[in-house]
Design a protein around this nucleic acid. Structure first.
Lengths: 137, 137
DNA sequence: CCATCATACCGTAATGATTACGATTTGTAA
DNA sequence: TTACAAATCGTAATCATTACGGTATGATGG
């Protein structure tokens, strides 16, 4: 998912494309990793003084709902990143900068066999640590 | 980890063994799955009227710190269960009742190979769904 | 280009989980 | 049994998130 795809998606669904909405998309495109509502708020405050919590959270939820963003919970705080739409995969997440790296490995086939009579609704597989550039810093 | 091991561990480390602390251990032994601070508070209020938040959270953190409990975050709320001390494994977690089932599968060997120059500090692998008894209910 | 109106946004208050803290109580070891 | 550190209480504070009435604004049809 990139900025243009996201804008088209919003228009298709009848949502308005405001300056703030575009800026939010650009923020996440540049981020290339997980960011919090607060990160986004701080970024937007530079351009839009007095921007409301409501605007930030409303748009994050909207983007999550329509599939522009994906979300995970780290240290008691929701984190968001642009949705990876292609194939199923998981992420390494850098504890220092939030950058992610895709991991192709997914063991759910084996797990499904081991859980015969359980109704599986979802799963979460994440690897945490330091990316190469944060190790040297 | 069972109740007696936990009590011994507390004594070894110089912590006091109060009635509330024992009750907390019994609560988790009977639970056999993830529970929230609120779940525990409600349980304790039946016995100790006017018990404080502080007591509940302080002990949960203490138990987490010394390894009596393990913790995970579900739906924005911390959940706790008795620590499984034997071998490394992951959990299926029932979305309805919090009961857990061990999963032996862990793909971290493959992942480590795929992440050569990344410093891996931890990982999380959880499967969510409905356990057999919650499916029929 | 302009009017209209639903949607988006602001300002701020409310909620829910968690943490913090001074005062009081209570295990525990001597 | 005493003394003291640790545990607990009562309550206030914090932090992320959600909610809402009133105002502003993007998009569409004329």
């Amino acid at each position: 998912m990139n900025v243009n795809e996201a804008i088209d998606l919003l228009k298709d669904k009848g949502y308005k494309t405001t300056g703030k909405r575009k800026d939010i998309l650009n923020f996440f495109e540049k981020a290339d990793g997980y960011r919090t509502a607060k990160d986004l708020l701080q970024h937007l405050e530079a351009t839009y003084e007095g921007i409301s919590f409501d605007t930030v959270y409303r748009n994050l939820h909207l983007y999550d709902e329509v599939g522009i963003l994906e979300t995970t919970e780290l240290n008691g705080e929701k984190h968001f990143r642009l949705n990876c739409t292609h194939h199923h995969h998981h992420h390494f997440i850098c504890n220092a900068c939030g950058t992610t790296k895709e991991i192709a490995v997914c063991p759910m086939d084996e797990v499904r066999q081991a859980l015969g009579n359980y109704d599986i609704e979802g799963h979460k597989f994440e690897i945490y640590g330091l990316c190469p550039s944060c190790q040297s810093a």
